[in-house]
Design a protein around this nucleic acid. Sequence first.
DNA 1: TCTCGATTTGACATCGATGTCAACATCGGC
DNA 2: GCCGATGTTGACATCGATGTCAAATCGAGA
Lengths: 343, 343
Amino acid sequence: MIVTIKDVAERAGVSPKTVSRVLNNETHVRPQLRETVLRVIEELNYKPNMFARGLSSARSYLIGLFIYDPYWSGYATDIQLGALRRCRELGYHLVIEPIDPHIEGAAEQVVDSVAGLRLDGVILPPPLCTFEPLLARIEEMGMAYVRISPGQDMDRSALVEIDEYAAAHEMTRHLIELGHRDIGFVEGIPTHAAAARRYAGFKTAMAEAGLTVNPDWVLPGMFTFQTGFAAADELLSRKGPLPTALFCANDDMALGAVSAARKHGLEAPADLSIVGFDDAPAARFSWPPITTMRQPVSDMVASAVDMLVDPKYRRDAGKDGGKPAPRLQLPFALVQRQSAATP
Amino acid sequence: MIVTIKDVAERAGVSPKTVSRVLNNETHVRPQLRETVLRVIEELNYKPNMFARGLSSARSYLIGLFIYDPYWSGYATDIQLGALRRCRELGYHLVIEPIDPHIEGAAEQVVDSVAGLRLDGVILPPPLCTFEPLLARIEEMGMAYVRISPGQDMDRSALVEIDEYAAAHEMTRHLIELGHRDIGFVEGIPTHAAAARRYAGFKTAMAEAGLTVNPDWVLPGMFTFQTGFAAADELLSRKGPLPTALFCANDDMALGAVSAARKHGLEAPADLSIVGFDDAPAARFSWPPITTMRQPVSDMVASAVDMLVDPKYRRDAGKDGGKPAPRLQLPFALVQRQSAATP
DNA sequence: TCTCGATTTGACATCGATGTCAACATCGGC
DNA sequence: GCCGATGTTGACATCGATGTCAAATCGAGA
């Protein structure tokens, strides 16, 4: 019933080992023989058994993606799709594991649970990429991993990122050039280092323009629609003077802020300019469309997959051996839409 | 370096087979011996190798979840999280595979690509659960599968659903009881049978109340924010009379409709009542919060996982053997929030 | 034609678990 | 004290691929 490598070998008149060589694109197979074997594989619709493969060789053809679910948003969706697509192109499969850093021992438990899977590598997007217990356990198990935009501890492992600082700086410049002088900021998750770098970029750009950051207008947020709404709602409920622009550390919060403004009878951008970060899909289709900073999230995570698949980076890249950890920086881009205008 | 079942056996002074029995909770092991083995497993931090396991036994401890990515929304997120959680509880892992029905041969390709994984079963949420080429290929491969809310072909396989028809009927009743007589409807994906059942429930409830459905107010949609926005935008741009309430076939479209209404200077629910379906997270946190119909999506998909894991349903449940395909119907609930009121 | 070295191929062991089946231990009933 | 029935345990084969290493083949140069 089920076709094995033996069946293919028999029919092609070669040994199983030769079929294996063809499957894995190894050298030392006569082109003509290779053709024959490929034809038979096609004819029998043979699919190698992953388990046999994983058992006998070192690779599992499995990549892990660890995510923190409550913050699922456009960003997390892009991450996932990018990884999924690249894995498929390379003949790998993706195993997704949610981890809640707030649950004691969750990281250890998850790493243990995938230990039997012998993953070829793990991808850690924010905020897990800065979650120390997780990193420690992964390193202890000797697993290869790549972080996405960790924002700190840059030499610890391979990573892919954009220059968050420069991007936030540019966005702030944009608001200033529009004529804003009173600019508020909604922060991201405190433990997420990239969030801090966005704020740093904002602050520096303000200082460089000779503007002061009003601490009352710097509000906490958790990267969700809900917290963006709450932050703006709280800000707009106050009696005192208000900013003319609000820089939200991501798009979901910007969307929330737009909603909250409306609750207070304010329209973006006429009464308040609101900008985001990430270029999430919803940012394009909401009303008004959100001015934001595009991150090539899919490309970033695709590069992460490439790194894990590439034998060059396979084990502990940059840990031993003294060679520096690969660090890939991809370009960002300001996307001007209709949620920001001159005050 | 890596701990195997042999190491555990040796240290516990038993045979590997006995350790295996303990691992799989088989009978015929003296309680005391079982204790000893469990203690050693703990001590050595032993994790069974999935590949060896999958190779020698029939199970893979892997469940597949096929999704159609462009429609990722609150609904798809809930599906995924529900599956992920339940899999973890049961010691299974989830392999997610995106499929685009519009790409010729995509379904076949994906099924082939997971053929080597020997999945214990596959979960098909909408809209893939009614995508014929995919179903055909899955059945051809003899894989077990469970559909979520297929809305048609009910005896073909195991499935989990809510009574979409009754739920839409109840929502429509709710609007009528609020005093609405002119009600519009934004449809879901045409190929998605559950969408048709929602519309059917709407139509019947209208007829039962002696109200006519104005065909000009029944608008096409694709379950996305964007298409909900477009539908409402188009409707509200017209010269003629307008409905006082709009029933959107899911929450993402309701959110889009709220945005579009605002673009036309209308506020929900004062100027137009807008209701959704699904109880997506964003429905709770938007402004105004959306009145919607709660589907226990996480429970539904968790039940689907249970069915696949339960040996009772393992292979071709309901195909051969003559026993009927299991069909699980879970309860829905109207969630009244602030996007609907008396006209 | 023969030889040496490089290339191509296959025999066999191996990965780490579980299935099968036979051997052994235990127990109650006669 | 013996018997069969039941419960417990382990020896060994097996799943389907790849790694190792030796054998076979090929080709060029003498």
